[in-house]
């Protein structure tokens, strides 16, 4: 159901109003701090009343999130946040319900709930803190750790093939898919605001640094000096350009997205690339093929897409449909008294 929470700038809530009185206990330098700040700032900007927010989490470093938000919150059990949150949203669709989860919580132990939440399109907003490591259990590889990763449980390197969370979400028929960074707060806040406005499940993958067990995980793409060349900002209606001078971009040839430099000769095109060749992003395209194409770009070789990849309009959320169905039945059949209920079947007198 569309969240009825109307942004109310009159209230002028500040980011710190969303902070609980609890001391934040993440390791100093953890990327989670940045995400917490971004969420609090975005909520303040939108003016969402605190009592209309519920933050639901599972288990893991990221899942301590609710304790630090002065909203309603529920720190549940490992992997089950989407299920708990689905119950909350179904019980009260007016709430703005956020799920805070991690790569282990959402994609390993909670994989089943994750895909089913998305396919149902429950009106939940999901922040997946992806640090590609198990932090709270002290440094084992996670389902998003790169192949070959040496961790405490993979001393000779992991042979597991990692998940691409955005591809998994798209494969689960997600209606909203986005990616941001812990250290790029204004960008992440924009995504959070768009997620809040989305009707169904809004899935946000946040690349987050664990400075204890997997430090520098994203340095090769997000370091300030190289960022412009390694990240491509995906924005609806705008061409997929990147590079400091926006002289590079992505073209769609041979059923794949290819990184090119404008002016360079491209073999598939058989000519020099022009600005017109660059894909203009349509986040509202019901066909997820191009969005899926973005998730398949090779990290470190191709630019890594960030921003809102998909935000399709139209599909109703699961909770909206459940409550519409309730209302339809109730319009035809009024609620029964206990007496009427008990006598509703075939009865007889003795």
């Amino acid at each position: 159901m569309t969240t009825t929470t109307k942004p109310d700038p009159e209230q002028k809530l500040k980011a710190k109003d969303y902070a609980s009185d609890q001391e934040v206990k993440w390791c100093p330098g953890c990327g989670d701090y940045g995400i917490l700040k971004s969420v609090q700032k975005a909520f303040a900007d939108m003016g969402i009343p605190k009592h209309e927010v519920a933050v639901i989490s599972g288990i893991g470093c990221s899942s301590r999130f609710p304790y630090y938000m002065d909203t309603y919150g529920f720190h549940s059990i490992h992997g089950r946040a989407p299920a708990v949150a689905s119950g909350v949203k179904l019980a009260n669709p007016k709430l703005s319900v956020w799920v805070a989860t991690g790569d282990g919580d959402a994609l390993s132990i909670g994989g089943n709930h994750f895909i089913h939440m998305i396919r149902r399109n429950v009106g939940l907003k999901v922040l997946l803190f992806n640090n590609r490591i198990y932090g709270l259990t002290k440094g084992q590889y996670s389902p998003t750790s790169e192949q070959g990763k040496v961790t405490r449980s993979t001393p000779d390197g992991s042979v597991d093939t990692p998940f691409k969370p955005l591809a998994l979400a798209l494969g689960s028929q997600a209606t909203f898919v986005a990616r941001g960074f812990d250290i790029m707060s204004p960008h992440l806040q924009t995504i959070i605001r768009e997620a809040q406005a989305h009707e169904g499940t809004a899935f946000i993958e946040v690349y987050q640094n664990c400075n204890i067990f997997n430090d520098h995980a994203y340095d090769s793409i997000v370091e300030k000096k190289i960022r412009d060349d390694m990240l491509v900002h995906v924005e609806h209606g705008k061409p997929l350009l990147y590079g400091k001078d926006l002289d590079k971009g992505l073209i769609w040839t041979c059923n794949t997205l290819t990184a090119v430099k404008i002016g360079d000769f491209d073999e598939d095109l058989g000519r020099e690339v022009t600005l017109e060749d660059i894909v203009v992003w349509d986040a509202k395209d019901p066909n997820p093929t191009l969005a899926f194409g973005l998730t398949q770009l090779r990290e470190g070789i191709d630019p890594t897409p960030i921003g809102v990849l998909r935000a399709i309009e139209g599909p109703k959320s699961y909770d909206t449909m459940v409550h519409e169905q309730l209302a339809q039945v109730q319009a035809k059949k009024p609620a029964r008294s206990i007496e009427e209920l008990l006598h509703s079947g075939k009865t007889w007198q003795v």
Binding site: R80, A83, V84, G87, K89, L90, L326, Q330, L341
Partner: peptide, 23 residues
Amino acid sequence: KQDDVITFQAEDEIAGICSAIGA
């Protein structure tokens, strides 16, 4: 439904109870 009952056929037993806990 006329008695305002919501039923949620969950993806598994765990989600069944967890959704109920959320509700």
